[in-house]
């Protein structure tokens, strides 16, 4: 029987794509939540705790 490497590659590639996609979705959700949390914190009680990481400034409303 032929080896059909292309099918093996397709299967593993697809699985990697799906799992990677779900992982990235979780990471994106996490980033959004962190940003939202900071914004909330900023509007509620002014500088609750200065962001420790020198990341890009979060626009304040």
């Amino acid at each position: 029987m032929p080896d059909n490497w292309s099918f093996v590659l397709a299967a593993y590639g697809l699985a990697a794509l799906v799992l990677g996609g779900y992982w990235r979705r979780l990471l994106r959700l996490e980033r959004e939540l962190v940003a939202l949390e900071r914004r909330r914190g900023a509007t509620r009680d002014e500088p609750r705790s200065a962001p420790t990481s020198p990341g890009p400034p979060i626009p304040r409303r």
């Binding site: 490497w5 093996v8 299967a11």
Partner: peptide, 25 residues
Amino acid sequence: GLVMAFGVAPREATQGNVQRIMYLH
């Protein structure tokens, strides 16, 4: 798991290498 599936596990006799999908499936 990838090392086991592609490096260690032998080629299956009847189906050939396509059987390696099993380690995912």
